[in-house]
């Protein structure tokens, strides 16, 4: 069983179109969802939670169709952090606990307050007086405190300082130690995703450019530095993207299509994404 299955999902908003989105997250894994602003990351997450309607395709969460009546039960097992922490601004952490206790059957009050303590959140302070980082941490504490099997996090680490981000990434890693626990996390901070993700999915202007195991990406793609003349010997089908500096060329290439004799370096996830986004622009 997969934690997330999206098959041929289509959604349009005016000029924006998400076409044929196919995404599969195996249980026990962490997937990073990457893409520029407006690429469709938030839409994909809203589609997963059936907060917006898909036009075509199938979506299953923890093995259950998200349009079926059983999905309500599945929502109990999904911790969601949206792109903004949407709690009413006059509430505090104690109020959030009281509301969530009456919302989720599996709500763990002690666990919630343990996270509140761990994240140094002032329990009595109103939500509007929190920093953006604190608001996100409270949302994450709430998402983790009802015994979820799947965490869906939309830009959950943005607005946090590097130390807090590191702390949260460790927490998400810890969460997936249990084999039926999975995480889907969207972020602009690719270095964070590179640290924790097993899979990376790249959305560009509503189109899924790839959804691949992180290690496979390193095996498939590489960076090649060549002179302008040498560059002409590279088969076109091997070249994904080119950066020209006038004297030499840097290329993102597919390793298996490269002729022998060229020294192909390791490509970071950020390199792969930047080259692909540039070529797809």
């Amino acid at each position: 069983m997969y934690a997330i299955e999206m098959n041929h999902v289509k959604k349009t908003y005016g000029a924006f179109a998400m076409n044929d989105l196919n995404l599969v997250l195996p249980m026990g894994c962490i997937m990073g969802l990457v893409g520029e602003n407006g690429a469709g990351k938030t839409t994909a997450i809203e589609l997963l939670m059936h907060a917006v309607k898909k036009e075509e395709g199938d979506i299953k969460i923890l093995g259950v169709d998200n349009e079926s009546t059983d999905f309500l039960q599945v929502k109990e097992e999904v911790g969601v952090v949206l792109d903004e922490p949407y709690f009413p601004e006059v509430l505090n952490a104690v109020n959030v606990n009281s509301i969530m206790k009456r919302t989720y059957k599996n709500w763990k009050e002690e666990e919630f307050f343990a996270y509140v303590e761990k994240f140094h959140i002032d329990k009595k302070k109103k939500f509007k007086d929190y920093s953006k980082g604190m608001k996100m941490k409270l949302s994450i504490a709430a998402a983790l405190s009802h015994n979820p099997k799947l965490l869906i996090l939309d830009e959950a680490t943005s607005g946090l300082d590097p130390i807090a981000r590191e702390e949260l990434l460790d927490l998400f890693n810890e969460f997936t130690r249990e084999e039926d626990h999975s995480v889907l996390i969207s972020s602009h901070i690719i270095s964070d995703l590179e640290k924790i993700c097993d899979y990376v999915a790249f959305l560009h202007r509503g189109t899924l450019k790839f959804c691949e195991e992180k290690d496979m990406l390193h095996e498939i793609y590489g960076i090649l530095h060549v002179g302008m003349k040498e560059a002409e010997d590279i088969p076109k089908e091997a070249v994904i993207g080119v950066r020209d500096n006038g004297y030499s060329r840097e290329m993102l290439v597919k390793r298996d299509l490269m002729p022998k004799g060229f020294e192909v370096e390791r490509a970071g996830i950020e390199d792969i994404i930047l080259y692909m986004a540039k070529e797809g622009a």
């Binding site: 939670m49 059936h50 907060a51 309500l72 039960q73 929502k75 109990e76 999904v78 969601v80 949206l82 903004e84 949407y86 709690f87 009413p88 601004e89 919302t103 989720y104 059957k105």
Partner: peptide
């Protein structure tokens, strides 16, 4: 009006409520 301003209505849609 407060729900709209805080965005709670969006959050409620991902919670286990019909």
């Amino acid at each position: 009006a407060y729900d709209e301003r805080s965005g709670w209505d969006k959050l409620a849609r991902v919670m286990p409520y019909t």
